[in-house]
């Protein structure tokens, strides 16, 4: 039994990395094919296909109700009743080794409103780490994560203070640090700056761009200027479908579809 498991582990780990698309295909960290979702008989997403490169920010824009948040929740398995295929690092997310919990450690998600646990700042950053001994010895990781989230300087002297004493903007960066601490390969962000003041917004964006050097970020936003600032790629969604996808500069300066043009100009979309 034990031998079996180890063997399977040895076999599978390289298999997953080997399955990464080879050189003749475009290199992708996440590939979504014909994703569809119905909730209570209502179509939320249909035929959504796109892919993320191995690093850089990809923004998702679109009117509210376009299914942007639902898309993220399908990708990390908070919603599971979707159809289609999601390949994470080339492996089917439904068949992910270790199940959804394990997948969610690989594909982090930052929610719109920061949620901190009722514990110290340090404990919050370490929250996703398994084993209390590992959590206790995680000082270095805490510092790295907080630095990556652009929060270290503000909290380095009070790591043991309750996390609830932080401002909302700081809490949001704490959430980013917490997600980063478990070293996800992909980070999904659901309007991460929607409830923040301008200064915090700037810091969060900085932190995102720093992170995007190493891992791909998929960021849902309703703020078109933010999508432009973040550069990278942009996906425009409306009514559960991907309307247009491309390099941000390209998409914002010369949108191809009439719906995109309309949306960029009037912030409304009529794609039926």
């Amino acid at each position: 039994m034990v031998a079996d498991l180890t063997q399977a582990d040895c076999l599978r780990v390289p298999a997953q990395s080997l399955e990464k698309p080879s050189s003749n295909m475009e290199v992708t960290a996440l590939q979504v094919e014909q994703l569809g979702l119905q909730l209570d008989g209502k179509v939320i997403l249909q035929d959504v296909s796109f892919s993320l490169p191995t690093s850089g920010v990809t923004s998702v824009i679109g009117p509210s109700g376009a299914g942007k948040s639902s898309l993220l929740r399908c990708l990390n398995g908070l919603l599971t009743q979707w159809s289609g295929t999601v390949l994470v690092d080339g492996a089917d997310s439904r068949q992910w080794r270790g199940g959804w919990d394990r997948l969610r450690r690989h594909v982090g998600l930052i929610a719109q409103k920061p949620v901190v646990f009722d514990a110290s700042i340090r404990a919050n950053v370490c929250f996703g780490i398994h084993g209390w001994r590992q959590r206790r010895r995680a000082d270095e990781l805490v510092e790295i994560s907080l630095r990556q989230a652009a929060l270290w300087d503000e909290v380095k002297d009070r790591l043991d203070a309750p996390a609830a004493t932080l401002s909302v903007g700081q809490q949001q960066r704490l959430c980013i640090a917490r997600a980063v601490a478990i070293k996800p390969a992909i980070l999904l962000l659901d309007e991460p700056t929607a409830s923040l003041d301008p200064r915090s917004k700037q810091l969060v964006e900085q932190s995102m761009q720093r992170l995007a050097r190493d891992i791909p970020l998929l960021c849902v936003t309703h703020d078109l200027e933010q999508a432009q600032r973040l550069a990278g790629r942009t996906i425009f969604m409306c009514d559960g479908r991907v309307i247009e996808e491309g390099e941000s500069n390209q998409l914002f300066s010369q949108p191809e579809c009439i719906e995109t043009r309309e949306f960029l100009r009037w912030s409304v979309c009529d794609c039926n």
Binding site: L5, D9, R97, G98, G99, R102, H130, G131
Partner: peptide, 11 residues
Amino acid sequence: MNSQHLLARDT
């Protein structure tokens, strides 16, 4: 910590 271990703990 490997995932089998985690699943076993949940169970």
